[in-house]
Design a protein around this nucleic acid. Structure first.
Lengths: 177, 177
DNA sequence: GTCTATAGGTGGATAGAC
DNA sequence: GTCTATCCACCTATAGAC
């Protein structure tokens, strides 16, 4: 799902991967919608945990952002894009409650980013112009798009360059970097 | 393709749309790969023409960027994402020469953006920190990601807000907006 | 060029034995 | 729980009549 998208992966793919017949997978996930929903829910959960770890590891807002970006980079290096970024592309074809899960992921992460930006702004380590919410939306969108484009290019370093630029954009000093 | 992605549209969809049987479409586009390749080629061409129009319409680099963003917004309002953004998500499943077309679209647009940024920087109407190429990559990636996320949210105005933020980022004056 | 008909494959999903 | 077997829908693609 993270590499090929919702419509290009199948029960047969999983079957080949885990060494169990298709029918047996249906025992756990009756429909593909169920499977998708559970997968996104799990993804959200593990992602949230990693974010929480970042929160507990440091108080430096800039460092939090760097490590947050690293979460996506870790995926990229395993040839995986953000699951919800992929599903956002397939959005109009998603069944049942999957779209809601995807929306929640975005809302959730925008909220976290906005929080970090606000804290960093108060602490004077981040320059946050205008609404932190919009700035957070820009960050998330840019990271999602950067993953897409970088993979097409076959050049992960482009993702890193863009991420660096985003961080530079939030720098307190240095009008010209 | 722009709304559902490469793997979720079919000859049957086109058939229903244009009132011609599936087999007849194969007469023009023998394989789906051919169809995809031609579609992206046409998309690139019309997109390039619109960009050229912008170039001829104004010399104001900031205005150029605004109108460039409008190109994507026009699609969004017709429930269409950027064709190449969509195909970038399906990238690992694309046949034949389609991936190359997608890559070219990105390279092409990054080059145009970099040119506009460089010109605007020289003219003193745009603040371009660091390499114009990277700044251009950030712009393109952010726009692509913003379309994805905004559609998931069902809120086009989020795309507009992010686009505004990107333009504000390139503003010459106003350290704090 | 467009049609009908169909091949050949794969998709998600179910029935029922073990 | 896992299997085999199977169903039905849909996919891309081709053959051949008109």
């Amino acid at each position: 799902m993270q590499t090929r998208g919702y419509n290009a992966f199948s029960y047969a793919d999983i079957s080949a991967e885990v060494g169990i017949r298709k029918a047996s997978i249906h025992y756990y996930f009756p429909s593909k919608g169920d499977l998708g929903r559970h997968l996104v829910a799990r993804y959200r959960q593990t992602f949230r945990k990693k974010r929480d770890q970042i929160d507990h590891k440091t108080d430096d807002s800039r460092l939090k952002l760097t490590q947050y970006i690293q979460l996506y980079l870790d995926g990229l290096q395993n040839e995986r894009l953000c699951l919800c970024g992929m599903l956002a592309a397939d959005f109009n074809t998603l069944p049942q409650a999957v779209p809601e899960e995807v929306k929640s992921f975005f809302a959730d992460n925008e909220a976290w980013l906005a929080k970090v930006l606000t804290e960093g702004s108060k602490a004077g380590v981040i320059r946050c112009n205008g609404l932190a919410e919009v700035e957070a939306q820009l960050l998330l969108a840019a990271l999602q798009g950067a993953m897409l484009v970088a993979r097409s290019r076959g050049d992960i370093s482009q993702f890193q360059a863009i991420a660096q630029k985003l961080l530079a954009m939030l720098e307190v000093k240095s009008q010209t970097v």
